[in-house]
Structure formats: C-alpha cells, structure tokens
Simulated assay, not measured.
Amino acid sequence: MFTIATWNINSVRLRSGLVTRLMSEEAPDILCLQECKSPVDLIPAELFHALGYHWMVARGQKGYNGVAIISKLPITDAGDRDYAGLGHARHVAARLENGVTVHNFYVPAGADIPDRDLNPKFGQKLDFLTEMRDAFHADAPSRAILVGDLNIAPREDDVWNHKALLKVVSHTPIEVEHLAAAQDAGRWVDVTRRDIPDGRLYSWWSYRARDWDAADKGRRLDHIWASPDIASAAHGSRILRPVRGWEQPSDHVPVLARFDL
C-alpha cells in the first residue's frame, strides 16, 4: 500500500517549509508537485531527503511551471512529453518498482478570456488537452496513475457556483469537454470523485478573496486518476482543506489517495 499526493505548490523554494511540514504530518509515500518555479538543480532536495524522500524525478525551468515527483519509494525516470510544443516543464513520469507509472501534469491555466482567437493562451490550453487525448488513444494507459493541477473543475459541484462560472476559464463547457475527451481516451477513473461522489469539493481558493474560508469560492482543479486496471486498488481519497490556511500558503491544497498494489 502507498499513499500519493498531488499539490500545486506555487514555488517549491519559497514554500519548502510547507512541503516539509506536509511530509512530516501526512507522510505520503509519493508527493507530486506542480508549479515548482525552479530549475531542477535548485529544488531543495536535501530537505526532503532528510525526511526519507530519497528519490526525485523532475523537470524544471527558471521562474515558471515545473513538475516534480518526490518519493520514499524507489522510482526511475520514465520520461516526459512537451504537450502542444510549448517548451514548458509541464509533464514528467516516474516508474515504481512494481511497474506502476506515475504521470504528473501541470495543464496550462489558459489566462482569463475563454476565446482562442482573442487569447492565444486559451488556445494553448485546449491544444495541450487535445494532445493528451491523442496520446492516450495511441497508447492506452495501463498500471498508471495520473495526477496534477489540470486547471479544470469539470463537475457542477466542483465549483462554488456553476452558472456564475460557465464563462470563466477553468469551468467553461469547451474546457470540460476537452478534459472529458482526454479522460475517456485513456479510460481514466477519477479516483477522488469515485471515493467522494457527492457534494461540493474544492482544491483551490483564490488569493483575491479577503477571507477565502468564509467566502468559500473554491474550485476542484487538482486531480488523481487511475487507469482502469488498477482503479479498484485506489481508496481513501482526501483533500486537505486546512492547508490553505497555513502561513504563506499556496492557493491550492494537497489531494491524496491510497493504492493497494
């Protein structure tokens, strides 16, 4: 059995203390971080190593993007893909000794205008998702876990107000359709919603809210999926809402699941 966590940390160096706190308090066996905003050689791996996280597979760039898989369990580098040809560090994969491959994604946010003609970043987001779909069609995932900040809240109860957000990037129908197409192509199982099927569920709250907790205008942007051959081994999903209240927090919180494999 192992526990996997995914967390958009919004700068791994600035928030290394929050990472080590999570490692100490929750001790996930595998921690996948997004938006590390650091070259790989400047990620403070020695802090994590001291807590038993002896393995890391990462892709980084200065000041932007960046993904890392940090593990107590032995992992090997399983490569990466430059989805949509953006030249960004937005995907990395690692393989466990039992043959399970973990994919860590940071899907582009898409900026503020949900129109690819007026906003090229929105088009890049849709193209990224389309290439994910095509990749899963071409090579059906098996013994695989996909985690990350997918920057889309797909269900009506994954946002604080469905109608109010239909024209807001992260919940527009075209984004939801593109994400569903990628999920369907790989027959991925949304582990979090399989475990917690009912009720509003969020993993992100904006920095703009004066009191994020009272306003509670959240969205579920962070996800854990499993390929159908191992989905039944997943259970115990949690979203660590209190982490949003830690000092100098990320605007995202960790999402966790356990796998009996």
Rank of each mutant, 00 (worst) to 15 (best):
D112H: 13
R258P: 00
I30P: 03
L126W: 10
D213F: 11
S142A: 12
D195Y: 01
R219C: 09
N65T: 13
V147K: 06
D115E: 01
R15E: 11
Y106Q: 12
H91T: 08
N10P: 11
N8R: 11
W212E: 09
D158K: 05
S232E: 14
S11T: 14
Y64K: 14
N8K: 12
S170R: 14
H49Q: 10
G87I: 12
Y64F: 15
T20A: 04
G52W: 08
A45G: 01
A93N: 02
A234K: 05
V255W: 06
I43W: 15
E35D: 11
I30A: 04
S237V: 04
S203D: 07
S142D: 03
L129D: 12
V159Y: 02
H137N: 15
R219P: 02
H88A: 13
L22R: 00
G66V: 07
T76L: 09
F259Y: 14
Y83Q: 09
Y64N: 13
N104Y: 06
V176K: 13
H49D: 11
H49R: 13
T172M: 07
F122T: 05
E97H: 00
D211G: 02
E35W: 06
S237I: 05
I230H: 00
H162P: 07
R187G: 14
A84I: 06
G63E: 13
G123A: 05
R13W: 08
N104M: 07
N119D: 12
G99T: 02
L129P: 08
R194S: 10
A185N: 10
D213Y: 10
D229S: 01
H49C: 05
V168W: 01
W205M: 03
F259K: 04
L118Q: 11
P120F: 07
R143N: 13
V191A: 05
E35H: 04
A181M: 07
N104V: 06
T192P: 00
N98R: 00
F128D: 10
G60N: 14
V169F: 10
D213M: 12
A135P: 04
G110S: 11
A50K: 14
E131I: 02
L86H: 03
